[in-house]
Design a protein around this nucleic acid. Structure first.
Lengths: 150, 150
DNA sequence: CGCTTGCTTGGAGTGCACTCCAAGTCAATA
DNA sequence: TATTGACTTGGAGTGCACTCCAAGCAAGCG
């Protein structure tokens, strides 16, 4: 069984086929569960909250955090953006826009579109370098007789 | 007159079609010329030298640096590696191997091959995220009627 | 009750890759 | 000769993204 089967309404909240450890309704994860699921450290999760990179996280009556599936989705997006080199400050800006509501849709779109462009450029850059690496590796692999240079 | 016109032998030293500001023989660049050519700062060039990321750079009798075309080629490679996220420590290691001579060919090849693999993975990762971005941008662009979520 | 485990906090510390500073030397021009 | 400007050095400072610390609270177990 995939996690999708018993989901009642299962709104596709965010990106692609994100699967949650527990169905909506039972989704109150401790920080260590989120650590296990996301690979982020507890420190980082708390830090993300402090700097405004998380929507307000639920608390128990004793003040412990309880994360929801929605939080997991958000963290998954944040993870993608971070992986693609978006500065934390920009992600915080994006989070602010989300908090401000629907009237920021176009600004959010701009932000994401700009970032997509930068990711595309980065890919191109990397592919460019790949050729240089291929070239140099060829030299090392093929010609051990080449004279010493770099 | 462009700087290239009188180029005598023009040995293709390193990667691809690298063009040098001046032909071999007249290649004694000041640090500011190298700054202009590479886009690196003078600070960074000196720092690279301090940490062992440069082969020994020539000096004038008064101690000023004079870079050669070979240095430019090396910096171009370093720039590529850095752009692709190789840690400075690894680049220093590579520089050491180069200094040690031909018997380190295979270790250099390994290092470069490993890095190539990491670059490939990085590209795949980025392309993955690109899809997420496309998906979200579509939502913002297409459906302004979608309910508020991330 | 005491102990352990897991969480809480503000603030300080870390590692990387620069980046800058102060003080000095040297060569060329006014 | 005086000044300007490009260069030199060791060491300190910066910005980012964490990462850790000390001290404390709450729940569960023997």
């Amino acid at each position: 069984m995939t996690v999708l089967e018993s989901a009642p309404v299962k709104v596709q909240t965010c990106a692609g086929a994100s699967t949650h450890p527990r169905p909506t309704g039972q989704d109150r994860y401790t920080i260590s569960e989120v650590v296990a699921h996301t690979g982020l450290s507890a420190h980082t999760l708390r830090w993300y909250e402090r700097i405004g990179l998380m929507p307000h996280v639920d608390r128990t009556h004793t003040g412990q955090r309880r994360f929801t599936n929605k939080d997991l989705d958000w963290l998954s997006l944040v993870g993608k953006l971070r992986l693609t080199g978006m500065p934390v400050a920009d992600m915080v800006r994006y989070a602010e826009l989300v908090r401000e509501g629907e009237h920021t849709f176009s600004e959010r779109e701009e932000l994401l579109t700009a970032h997509r462009e930068s990711v595309r450029q980065r890919i191109a850059e990397l592919q460019d370098t790949l050729q240089v690496l291929d070239f140099k590796i060829d030299i090392y692999a093929g010609g051990r007789r080449v004279t010493e240079r770099a």
